[in-house]
Design a protein around this nucleic acid. Structure first.
Lengths: 226, 226
DNA sequence: GCCCTATACTCCAACTTGGAGTAAAACATA
DNA sequence: TATGTTTTACTCCAAGTTGGAGTATAGGGC
């Protein structure tokens, strides 16, 4: 019973709150849902489960299949209280890792083929996740999803992911189409003009007048992450 | 000159490739662009800069303002080569941290007000980032952005971010509207029916037939991150 | 002349990651 | 029936990363 809880702790706790899981299931199943919103190493899951158990927030029960032991965890009253308390604390901001964009920034150092490859990879990844999303959709329609009794909440998450992934796929598509019209990645007047036109048409409001200073990045990104 | 380069190394290298920066500028300016695609601690930037310099991929020149020294780094030929080589290696998959969704999963343990608060926070964060995006747009229109000579590439990134943020904002909006019609967060038949209907209408293809087994999560998420 | 903020970093304890390792059970295949 | 492969069920640890505290000078405003 030492130390404070991290967001990873709450992620595990939130998963155990859904229904009891063995540690192994916990590690495997989190790949299905939690990994997308809060990635953590497999070994971290085992560690957290033990920590939460030592703090009395979850309860582990040993089961045996022959000589092989497994621990099945369920949430305790104290665990639910901890989650409720957490719901009142400030939230850490959205953040992402998107190596592909890093590569696009320096793409002119490489070849057009490499950039096309990067974008195809992004699109393929989005499509693969969409396929998974489609399967989850089917699970809900068939009434067999693990969280079927929380459809009213999970539907919001499904909506979020599908919207996001469709946005990414559409972006990769139109960007590929744009690149296909280029001979290479060098900055020409023609391309720069088209780029500026694209920026002009991007659906976001400008500050209205020209900027005196270079703009400050948003505060939300400055908030501490756990 | 020890060790392999991590994606964070390449992120710093990619930034130095844009133009020479002092380490302090590097740390501050990366908040403006790189942080969104590859978050890293400030101290990590200083460390990486030194490492890259010791490997001869960037060159640091000491400048003095009175007694206060600062190091201005520029990329070397070897640094450009390293970036080119990197462009040919496999890409790590997209991943995100989105604590808000974790909270939504367990929202029924708390109050409706807390959930509304979470969603408002998500919307506010998205709007704040959109405001920043609008300022960046204005910078490009005014021709004063640091990466103005790479507009043709940066326009793709601007397009990506604005699309993504608009998607998130729209989701937060419609989700708030949905929640407003609820009395509380408990799972009722009425809400579950609406949730299922929402899932049915989500724009993604289902596997066509019902699933025998619970679906496997996508491979792309299994690829190693650096 | 004084205070506040920006510049320009260093250092480190605590935590996290990813991979390797261990071992038994269950299932498939010959 | 033997043998190999996959799944279950974890532990351990070296190497890397984080966030915050700390240090010190410069410059501008009042």
């Amino acid at each position: 019973m030492k130390g404070k809880l991290t967001t990873t702790s709450y992620a595990v706790l939130a998963q155990v709150a859904v229904r009891p899981w063995s540690t192994y299931e916990l590690a495997q199943q989190r790949v299905r849902y939690f990994r997308y919103v809060w990635p953590a190493a497999e070994s971290a899951i085992y560690r957290e489960a033990k920590r939460l158990a030592s703090m009395g927030l979850i309860e582990g029960e040993k089961e045996y299949t022959g000589k092989r032991a497994r621990t099945v965890y369920s949430i305790t009253g104290a665990g639910k209280d901890a989650l409720r308390e957490w719901l009142g604390t400030p939230i850490s901001p959205f953040s992402m890792e998107f190596e592909a964009m890093l590569r696009i920034f320096v793409a002119p150092l490489g070849t057009k083929d490499e950039m096309v490859g990067t974008l195809r990879q992004v699109r393929a990844d989005a499509q693969e996740m969409l396929r998974f999303g489609g399967e989850v959709k089917q699970e809900f329609i068939d009434g067999i999803n693990v969280t079927q009794d929380q459809v009213h909440i999970r539907a919001l998450a499904v909506d979020f992911f599908i919207s996001l992934l469709n946005t990414v796929e559409a972006w990769a598509d139109r960007t590929l189409a744009e690149i296909e019209t280029w001979d290479d990645l060098a900055a020409t007047e023609e391309k720069k003009k088209r780029g500026l036109e694209k920026i002009r048409q991007v659906p976001v409001e400008t500050p209205g007048e020209s900027l005196k200073d270079i703009s400050k990045p948003p505060e939300s990104q400055m908030r501490a992450r756990s």
